[in-house]
Design a protein around this nucleic acid. Structure first.
Length: 713
DNA sequence: CGATGTAGCACC
DNA sequence: AAACGGTGCTACATCG
């Protein structure tokens, strides 16, 4: 034990950065260089040879021991996106080099989180932030690596055909798209080694020079950022933000399970149907003549549209243009297709063509998503004790999560994106996802949180009443139905006449399902997402509402909420940002600052401030929910001594929904085993409402087999 | 051939 | 002028 001292010492700190052979750590990507730097600028780094035929680094165990010692000897560990480096180092475990990394989360400081907190809508990459905060340009080091690596790739391709150069469709690197050279930064040194380049040749050090620049910039950057965080009074909020890092890391590591059988069931069906529709389209096209007078040979696109299809539709069939793209070109998106389906003459070849084209497009889209899930997944059973069958038919995806990926506090997700998995009727791609054998899933959803926030914050009684008394006549908690009654009082009145006040809502919802009620929903979404309303003028949601002056009518009915909108706009115009609602458990004085988008002329876009304020507040709420739930589940796992995938896990976040993967209950009522745990999860989520001062109820569903099939509890 | 921009579409 | 907010991925088209 070190002696206690009264002298307050400056915390010792280092920065750490890792270079890797890719980003797919659950496939073949591995680290090959670790660099550290202390505040005086002193560097200490470890660079490993990479076997060019396997792309695996050759790592002396003593190096890992040295890295571990260096990490554990300091009070603060500065990184740019820490979970990336940890995920990289964690892969070395699989090489049998180390047992575990006891990563000091308490010591971690993240320049990426700091970058978002200080300037939420500015770039957060190290190069941009070095320029912004330190006035240092470091892009030349990356440029040098790019030139060297590209040249080294060319040498390898011609002289060493057995070497595994990164490619788009390369095995073990499903994320590789463009810029594959970034996966080969180990290559210049490998070539220098293989071809006995002289000691002074730059390729020996071009990559380590680049990496070392990053670690020395990171340590200086954190000093600058920390001072700025302090100056702006954001320390408490920053400290709270740090708590999401281990949560996100664990979510990525656990990932989500998917059934190969169920995925193939959907894919085989869609493929057959798509091919059939495609054949019909090509045959119909042959009945028409191309400009030379020959039967039109249509080449269908894999997805979307191509020139062959555009020419056929607009030049040969001469269908009218019903929509334009951003650049003014005739559109063939699903809205345009819907218009054609509703307007082309019945039993015409044109209509039949369009029907089959639309059928094909929706199936092709679904197939495209499923192909990408298959590309990214890894077989189950490497780390746990699944049975033989499960090993073969179940897989795991490890989507990447970016807590700083948006202009607000929403997270983004990629490789693959877990947040846009279709739940469309007839194309529910959540069907293949769900609990593996011996497991069960639960999903918990914050009910209407983005509508509640502005209603409660502004004190809009009529809307609050809907949320408070969802079972009461006449609207039964339905915001859409309330708005419907305001927009079309005559329809609403007639319904009351017809069936009485208590049944009017159900009656209207059914009778006007595809007309006025659908328009109401469309308009409400437009308003929620910031459609512009000008007093006395026409609101941009009016078109969606199908009601001239509709948006103004709603805004004046909900004048308090309208005031909140104006307040957010004024605040943003004055300060450039809005804040989320303060969280009394973090900093009762202030919320998270979100910079608002400006137009090219420097003015705040008026559609943005309220939207960011609400979206940001909802996601601050979600962040707290995730931190509390993860802590609770970790505690259960510790008490029950459940390790690895066998325990209780938070595995997914889709903005207002969390998904959990638990050990399965047994018997005739299996959901009962974990019901007390999910009730506590529900309570921990709802608790966030107290922190911001409004009720935030959460609904929970049990999934025995699939994410697409849930039972409310 | 690689790089870049556009179109289209999935989610909340 | 801004005119409906936030994302990620794939295919296609074009250009050097």
């Amino acid at each position: 034990m070190p002696a206690k001292t009264n002298k307050r010492k400056t915390p010792s700190r280092i920065s750490l950065d890792t270079e890797t052979t890719g980003v797919d750590f659950h496939h073949d990507a591995r680290p090959f260089l670790v660099t550290t730097c202390d505040p005086s600028g002193e560097l200490l780094f470890w660079e490993w040879d990479v076997d060019p035929e396997t792309r695996q680094p050759i790592v002396p165990p003593s190096d890992l021991e040295a890295i571990r010692e260096r990490i554990n000897s300091v009070d603060e560990l500065v990184l740019q996106n820490p979970k990336f480096d940890l995920a990289a180092l964690d892969t070395l475990e699989q090489l049998g080099i180390r047992s575990t990394w006891d990563w000091p989360w308490h010591a971690v400081r993240d320049t990426l989180l700091a970058g978002h907190l200080l300037a939420s809508n500015k770039p957060h990459d190290l190069t941009s932030m070095a320029l912004q905060y330190l006035r240092v340009k470091i892009d030349k080091y990356e440029a040098a690596v790019e030139v060297a690596t590209k040249e080294a790739r060319n040498i390898a391709k011609t002289q060493f055909p057995k070497w595994r150069i990164a490619t788009k469709q390369g095995k073990g690197m499903p994320s590789a798209k463009d810029k594959t050279w970034k996966y080969d930064m180990w290559l210049p040194r490998a070539i220098a080694n293989e071809l006995d380049y002289p000691e002074r040749h730059p390729w020996w050090t071009v990559t380590s020079d680049y990496a070392n620049t990053d670690s020395s910039v990171a340590i200086a950057l954190w000093a600058a950022m920390e001072a700025e965080i302090e100056r702006r009074g954001l320390r408490k909020i920053y400290n709270e933000r740090l708590r999401v890092l281990p949560v996100a890391y664990r979510m990525e590591k656990c990932g989500i399970t998917a059934s190969e059988e169920r995925l193939n069931e959907l894919r085989v069906r869609y493929k057959e149907e798509s091919e059939e529709s495609g054949r019909i389209c090509v045959n119909i096209a042959k009945d028409f003549k191309d400009p030379e007078g020959n039967p039109y040979e249509l080449t269908l696109p894999k997805t979307g549209a191509n020139n062959s299809l555009r020419t056929f539709i607009f030049d040969v069939l001469k269908l009218p243009v019903v929509g334009r793209t951003d650049t003014g070109a005739p559109s063939l998106d699903k809205d345009a297709k819907a218009i054609y389906l509703n307007t082309l003459p019945p039993r015409s070849k044109q209509l039949r063509f369009m029907q089959n084209l639309a059928d094909k497009a929706s199936r092709d889209t679904a197939i495209q998503y499923m192909d990408s899930y298959e590309r990214f997944w890894v077989p189950l059973g490497i780390y746990n004790e699944m049975g033989e069958q499960a090993w073969q038919l179940w897989h795991r995806l490890h989507p990447n999560l970016n807590p700083t990926g948006t202009n607000t506090l929403r997270w983004s997700s990629n490789n693959p994106n877990e947040q846009n998995i279709s739940k469309k009727e007839g194309f529910n791609l959540r069907y293949p996802f769900g609990p593996a054998p011996g497991r069960e899933w639960w999903s918990c959803d914050a009910k209407n949180i983005e509508l509640r926030i502005p209603a409660y914050e502004s004190g809009e009684e009529e809307l609050i009443a809907l949320f408070e008394r969802p079972d009461e006549s006449p609207f039964y908690g339905s915001n859409h139905m309330l708005v419907f009654s305001i927009l079309w009082p005559e329809l609403w009145g007639a319904a009351i006449e017809e069936v009485g006040l208590d049944k009017a809502a159900a009656y209207c919802k059914k009778k006007y399902a595809s007309t006025n009620y659908q328009w109401t929903k469309n308009g409400n979404f437009a308003v929620q997402y910031g459609a512009v309303d000008r007093p006395g003028g026409e609101g941009t949601a009016d078109i969606a509402y199908h009601k001239p002056g509709g948006q103004r009518l709603i805004a004046s009915r909900f004048s308090k909420q309208d005031n909140l909108n104006q307040q957010c706009i004024s605040h943003a115009e004055r300060f450039g940002y809005v804040e989320t609602m303060p969280d009394k458990t973090v900093d009762p004085e202030r919320g998270y600052p979100l910079l608002c988008t400006r137009s090219d002329y420097g003015k705040i876009k008026p559609t943005v401030p309220l939207n960011y304020h609400v979206q940001g507040t909802a996601m601050w709420w979600m962040q707290g929910a995730m931190i509390r739930c993860d802590g609770f589940l970790q505690e259960i796992n510790r008490k029950k001594r459940l390790t690895g995938y066998s325990g209780y896990h938070l595995v997914m976040q889709v903005h207002d929904e969390l998904v959990f993967d638990f050990p399965a209950g047994e018997g005739s009522e299996p959901w009962k085993m974990n019901l007390p745990i999910i009730r506590e999860v529900q309570r921990l989520m709802e608790q966030g409402g107290d922190n911001i001062g409004l009720p935030t109820p959460v609904s929970c569903e049990y999934h025995a087999t699939s994410w697409s099939e849930g039972v409310g509890v």
